[in-house]
Amino acid sequence: MKILRTGTNDFTCLPGDPKGVGSPPMCEDKVAMQWNRDFAEHKAKPTTNVPGVEYMLAGATQRSDSNPFDKTDPPIRIGPHWMILWPFDPKTTGLPTTHKPTGAYIMWAGTPWAHVHIMGAP
């Protein structure tokens, strides 16, 4: 993992890979870094026990709002957003599970990798 800049506020910024799907430039706290390491290692679920926070002000690409490990669907471009990495449940939160250009939705609902996207630049 290439670190763009280590922050002084527990956030670390990474340059990402503009040509890669699912590897955008981002800044993340220590918990989010562990969550992303677990995801990259294809663990059954995150090993974190508190929510992590990350943001992607340049937006990102992903393949699916429902399948965390989808490698075949065409890329979906999403705009700037924040993510709260915690297994949120749409039934208890009332949040939708489909991509929205603004507001919040739960990505990968029903999986251990579920988390909230808060769309829009802060």
Rank of each mutant, 00 (worst) to 15 (best):
E41K: 08
E54Y: 11
T48S: 13
G22A: 01
I118L: 12
S23E: 12
W86N: 05
P96Q: 14
K45P: 01
N67C: 04
G120T: 09
M26C: 05
S66I: 07
P25K: 06
P15A: 15
I106N: 04
A109N: 06
E54D: 12
A40M: 13
I84E: 08
P74I: 08
M119D: 05
S23V: 13
V21D: 01
D70L: 04
W113E: 03
M1G: 11
A32M: 07
D65A: 13
Y55Q: 02
I106G: 06
K30S: 10
P96E: 06
T102R: 03
F39N: 06
F69W: 13
D10S: 14
W113G: 09
M56N: 09
K30H: 00
E28M: 15
A114N: 07
G79M: 10
N9C: 07
I3Q: 07
G52R: 05
I106M: 08
I76K: 07
T6P: 11
F11M: 15
P90N: 09
V53R: 08
P80E: 09
T98I: 01
A58T: 02
P112E: 09
A114C: 01
K43W: 14
T61V: 08
L95V: 01
M119S: 08
V53S: 10
H117Y: 04
A104S: 13
C27W: 05
S64V: 01
D65R: 02
D29G: 09
P87G: 12
P101H: 10
T8H: 11
D70C: 02
I106L: 11
M26L: 08
W35I: 09
A60R: 00
T102Y: 03
G79C: 15
E41I: 05
M83Y: 03
T48Y: 11
G110E: 15
E54G: 10
T97G: 02
T102G: 01
A58R: 00
F88W: 08
M26W: 06
T72I: 13
V50M: 13
F88M: 01
A32L: 05
F88T: 09
K91R: 11
V53G: 10
P15Q: 15
G20L: 00
R5N: 09
A44C: 02
L4D: 03
W86C: 06
G16D: 07
A104L: 00
E54F: 10
N67G: 02
Q62V: 06
K71N: 15
D38W: 06
A109R: 01
Q34R: 10
P18D: 07
K30V: 12
M119F: 03
Q34G: 00
P46G: 12
Q62R: 10
G79P: 03
N36D: 07
I84F: 06
T98L: 02
P15N: 15
Y105S: 03
I118W: 03
D89R: 11
I78W: 03
